[in-house]
Design a protein around this nucleic acid. Sequence first.
DNA 1: GTTCTTAAAA
Length: 627
Amino acid sequence: MLAQSIKRNSSYSFNSILRTLLKSVNLEKALDHFVQYREQGLLPDIYAIPSLLKLLHDLHHPLRYRENIHSFAIKNGYLKDIFVSTGFVEMYFSFGYVASSRHLFDEIPTKDVVLWTAMVSGFSHNGLGDLAVDFFSQMLREGVKPNRITLASVLAACSQLKVPNLGRSVHGFSIRNGIFSSDVVLETAFVDMYAKCGNLTYSTKVFDQMRDRNSVTWNAMITSHANNRFPEATFRLFREMVCENLREPESPMLASLLQVCGGTSDLRHGREIHAYVTRSSRNMNSDMMVEKNALIDMYAKAGDLKSAVSLFENVKNKNLVTWTTMISGYGVHGLGAEAVEAFNAMKKTGTTPDGITFIALLSACSHGRLVDEGLELYISMQRDYKIEPEMKHFACIVDIYARSGLLDQAFRFIKKMPVEPSEFIWASLLSSCRTYKNVDLGEQAAKKALAFNQYNAGVYVLLSQLYADSGQWEDFSKVRLLMKDLGLKPTTAQSWVEVERKMYIFTVRDNLNPYSEKMYKLLETLIETMHKEGFAAYGSFGCHDITKEEKEGNLCGHTEKLALAFVLIKGGGHQGVIRIGKNLRVCKDCHVFFKFVSKIKDCDIILKDPNRYHHFKQGNCNCRDLW
DNA sequence: GTTCTTAAAA
């Protein structure tokens, strides 16, 4: 009698101390506490089981320890307790054993809202959003009333499945049932759900009305704007967060922001984040690898290869991502040899490449016109590293051949591929067919690409340009008419340049700029000089069968020329380097013109097109005139 | 005593 009561008392105090320690995340002490209790020969009671499961979970103890507890619980008949069984349901979910969780769930006779919620969130965490939603509706059918935690769980599933309708009805339900009243977690779940379902307007609405926001809220908001490509809003929100809330952003958010900068060639914001990362207080106790790698990638993608390289060289413990980032950085700048060199240096450090390293490497070879090296690396990848080539590797090899003019070999390679070639592969072959004016193969490639997607405007544009370059004007017109019938429009050309911290955007035949007159005048003069000096002969012309005057009038309207003229007039450029961006591939005439300007104005020009960078210097471009 | 939202570099 007395022994019983001592036992009950000690188990009661054991449980409450254990819970307190768990709450304050004192895991080591909590474990000690448990060990001491066991050393007294005492066994955990029914109330201790959920806490013990949580402790082992937080300590990352292996499944078998927890299964011991499971057998122990079964032996003692503890499983009839819904708190205990819910704990085990959760445990199996956390190891991905969905079937075990489901089985346990089925055994439980009376199910409460917490158990149902554990099911909904368990499925959702295991990527089974559809089952999460199924169980949620089943729960409603059985008359169990969801609470705010259930709703947050089902919203996570909605985000995953991108089903805005269900999310909206959950919203309505929560308002009608008064479950909504300023709960940060639930509101954040709504912000995230609307954003992931593509409705940033609703997401922003909920966000704006929130009284309290936590770091998860800001994260959901900022990364969703980044992922939906709203660069301005992304940075506005970031500033708001930093200024008003004094919240330190963590690595994933910084990486997202840097990715935005790389994608939009936004060096200015990129440098700001760099400064922010440098003075961040986390420097002390973390290796900041994600930030460092993301910075290298940002500088390379935003066109400042120098900064990328110098950061790269200062990273002490380069990991696989660091190396791959640098290899890919060299690649987009057309520096194939440097990419291969970096790869060899990486091998010396004992870092093993993976499939992505080879994608970066092979694409660097194709842009650097290193055919033999590329093919050799492709063999080495399979032989030495046992990496099975995938579609992206195939695409690189096709490109390595085709970009160098080995169109037949590219075609033969495609025919031998073990999988069905993708739309992208055909389109890239077509692009090289255009460069080398191979109409026959180009037509075949276009046909194959269009079989995937009849509405791929890019393919029609390439095909029509191929016809135009080959002087087949009837075919050219046919393709353009076909495009019109299908309601397709070629992408409007745009170039942009930053002068005095402001971005200027130019479209074809832009007359809106107050400097227009001056710009056209300057272009005329420059082009005249270029012809006089015989520089124009460096390019191969023949884009259009129009008169020479018409042609030059037209060429002056090319957006990259306008951007260049604008910078020259405004005296822009950063440390002798002019950076211009373009949303389409640079045309041959503009390419020659840029080379010429880099020579007579003695400046470096870095021009970004959708695929790579061109570095113009002293009358040359590092792409060696093939791109 | 059990159930809840977010997130990353090639």
